[in-house]
Amino acid sequence: MAVSEEDVKTAGNGAAAAPAAVGEATNGKKPGGHEYVVRAKDLVKEFQMGQETTRALNGVSLDIKRGEYISIMGPSGSGKSTFFNMIGGLDKPNSGSVFINDVDMAQLDAQELAFLRCHTIGYIFQTFNLIPVMTALENVQLPTIFAGKSSEDGTARAIELLEIVGLEHRLHHKPSQLSGGQQQRVAIARSLANNPSIVLADEPTGNLDEKTGKDIIALLRRLNKEQGVTVISATHDHKMVDVSDRVVWIRDGRVDKIELREDIDLHIGSMGNEDDEA
């Protein structure tokens, strides 16, 4: 389904109802921490495979500004998904640290980590990962339940978000009754349920066709602009480059280069080949 002009209009209303996270997030922040929402320092992650130890991340450092749209690019096996899992608090590094809003993740206990996952970070996955037995509405409402919100508030929020992503007519459909693009929209709505300051998207277009992928990227970019949410997406989809503020190239567990969008436009033609080895 296309993200059409109408969608953008409805989104305008939605955005009005759900005030931009940026403004709120900056209020009451401790001095010195205004700018960066994510700071990763010297991350190292190793995986044990039988006798062999594979180093998926080999000292990755990255600072991400509030409200940025970042793409983490690299071929499969470059470590980008591992890096993504580290900054999302879904996995722990062997060494190095991740700060989210100036909070060192390593210092958090399980309950605080759950709080962080619930309130601060929204996740979008390549495989959508909707709960198959729940309807679109219930899926989007789920994070609000974990946040302890009443079901009335949660339902209202879920409906509002599903309207923003243009699925107001699919509230009571199960994931199996939705197309891939629609499922990913539900997942995007779900990721925003508790007004997170960061949305992490792991290959959000990986399971979608060209056109649907484009729509999803446009939707993410729009939400990034309108809701002020920081979007970090791991991808090897070059359509992402067009909308990203910065592109971080990861190769062999290291940051290969970081490019601003202005710079990328110049040599965009040369990037097509790198994707094929993935």
């Binding site: 996270a21 309950q111 709080f115």
Partner: peptide
């Protein structure tokens, strides 16, 4: 999420 106000879930 604004301040470093991470609380237990």
């Amino acid at each position: 999420h604004a301040a470093s106000g991470v609380r237990p879930q």
